[in-house]
Structures are given as structure tokens and as C-alpha cells.
């Protein structure tokens, strides 16, 4: 692995993995504790519509995905909160519509897009410097917003009704959180692909949660786990010539399963606040 880092593509891959770990470590914690896994799955799959739109318009698929995913996230937010349809039903419908739009757009584009598979299943080995810059900006925005609104997001996740009563703009923050989820999805597409994004949004946070009951510590641990998963998966894929996205997810999944057998670390369960 160390000698592999002399190649620029490997350095880029490692950097992309670490940036992805920061984004999914932070936002993944909200996804897991606020029980937003399904809506995040919907948002991440709907992002495929944006990739198709990117091809169709002849712009970068990732740029298409950026705008399309934010729109999809906000539409899902409005529909799930306003319409009198069960939340999972409306998410399921929008999830499928997003993907269908992607397929239609790609069908309308002449020729078969050569790198389609890398958007579906990710290919961390072909991440460009431009991708890295975009990922860096999105990750920085995520960190900035969460640092600024940490206590509000905590109350929103814990008890929306009480947060509303004490004057937290709950609805507004919920939509902001959806936008951050969309950002994270876009960051992760390059790494694991639209189909597998949901795994990185949930597994690092779910693993971290087994070791602490403090949200801040959970986020830091999730970032740590995410970094281990992406770099471990990258190493596996380099050594054994496996698809990188799938390798990352397998490393994550196996670690999570292993964590189920590890009893909670006594040191970390009792940390109080002063």
C-alpha cells in the first residue's frame, strides 16, 4: 500500500476516502439516530436521475447529480411532511421515479456512457483532482454547518415537538439536514456509487454507536471507522483487484458484524458530561 501511494491515482483515492469518511461520519450519525435511513436511501438512489441528466445535458454527471439530488431531497422532505401519505410509501415512490428518470435520460443520450458503472457502483481509483476539490468543499460545508447548529440538530433529532416549543425552527432545519444528506450522497457517489451510498451513510455511524452515547464522540468515532473502511477497502481492491466500492462496503459490513460480538467498551459507556 505504501509504495502504491507513489501513484497519484492512489493518493487521490485515499484522500477521497478520507473526505467521504468525514461527510458520512457526521451526517450518517444524524441519519441513524433520527431514523432517516429510508429517506436517505431514497435520496441516494434518486441521485441516479441526476447522473442521467448530466449525461443528457452533456455536463459532468456529478454536477447533474448535485442539483438533482438536492431537489430530490427537498421534494421528499416536503412530500413526507406535508402530504397525508405514509412516509415510507411516498419515499418508495420518489425513489423509483428518480431512478427511472436516470434510465430515461441515459436512453435519450446517443451512445452508451462508458463510465456509467463507476457512478452506479463507484470507482475510487479514477477520482480526479477536480472531484477531490468538490468533495473537499462539500465536506467543509457539512462540518461548518454542523458545528454552527450542533445543539439545534441534536434537539431536532431527539424531540421535534419540544424543539418547536422552545423556538427552534424545526422545519427549516429538517430541510437543511436533507440538503446536507444530499451533499453527502454526492460526495459518496465517486467512492461507492449511488447504489451503495446508503451503506456508508449507515454502517460507520451504526458501528460507532455501539461504543458511546455521546453524539459528538459518536461522530468522531464514525469518521474514524469510515476512514478505516475506505482505506481498508481501497487496499483490498488494490491487492486483490476487486471493485473498490464493493470492497469498501464488504469491509464495513464485516466490521459492523464483528462489532456486534464485541461487548461495549467499559471505558466509553460511562463518559459523563461536566
Amino acid at each position: 500500500m505504501i509504495e502504491a501511494l507513489q501513484y497519484e491515482f492512489m493518493r487521490n483515492a485515499l484522500t477521497a476516502g478520507l473526505l467521504a469518511a468525514v461527510a458520512c461520519g457526521i451526517i450518517g450519525c444524524y441519519v441513524v439516530v433520527k431514523r432517516m435511513v429510508f429517506i436517505s436511501g431514497g435520496v441516494s438512489h434518486a441521485s441516479f436521475g441526476g447522473i442521467g441528466l448530466g449525461y443528457f445535458l452533456g455536463i459532468s454527471p456529478i454536477v447533474g447529480a448535485f442539483f438533482f439530488t438536492i431537489t430530490a431531497a427537498l421534494v421528499m422532505g416536503v412530500v413526507t411532511r406535508r402530504a397525508k401519505i405514509p412516509e415510507d410509501t411516498s419515499i418508495g415512490i420518489l425513489w423509483a421515479i428518480g431512478m427511472a428518470m436516470g434510465i430515461i435520460f441515459i436512453g435519450l443520450t446517443p451512445g452508451f456512457p462508458p463510465d456509467l458503472m463507476s457512478y452506479l457502483f463507484g470507482n475510487i481509483l479514477i477520482v480526479t483532482t477536480a472531484d477531490i476539490i468538490m468533495m473537499l468543499i462539500l465536506a467543509a460545508i457539512i462540518v461548518f454547518v454542523v458545528v454552527l447548529l450542533y445543539k439545534e440538530f441534536l434537539s431536532l433529532s431527539f424531540d421535534e415537538e419540544f424543539a418547536t416549543v422552545v423556538g427552534v425552527p424545526v422545519e427549516w432545519l429538517y430541510f437543511l439536514l436533507l440538503c446536507l444528506i444530499a451533499f453527502t450522497v454526492v460526495v459518496l457517489i465517486r467512492v461507492v456509487g449511488t447504489i451503495l451510498v446508503i451503506a456508508l451513510l449507515t454502517i460507520p455511524a451504526a458501528t460507532a454507536r455501539r461504543f458511546t452515547h455521546d453524539l459528538k464522540k459518536m461522530m468522531l468515532l464514525a469518521i474514524l471507522f469510515g476512514s478505516l473502511f475506505t482505506s481498508g477497502g481501497l487496499w483490498l481492491s488494490y491487492e486483490l483487484d476487486l471493485a473498490s466500492g464493493a470492497a469498501i462496503i464488504l469491509v464495513s459490513g464485516v466490521t459492523f458484524l464483528a462489532s456486534l460480538f464485541v461487548s461495549r467498551l467499559p471505558l466509553m459507556t460511562r463518559v459523563g458530561r461536566g
Binding site: V33, K151, L154, S155, A163, H213, D214, L215
Partner: peptide, 10 residues
């Protein structure tokens, strides 16, 4: 993941 302190502080 919130302590009693975190919740009361809300």
C-alpha cells in the same frame, strides 16, 4: 445518544 444533561439543557 444523549445524556440527561444534554436533554435538560435543550
Amino acid at each position: 445518544p444523549a445524556s440527561v444533561w444534554d436533554v435538560v439543557m435543550m
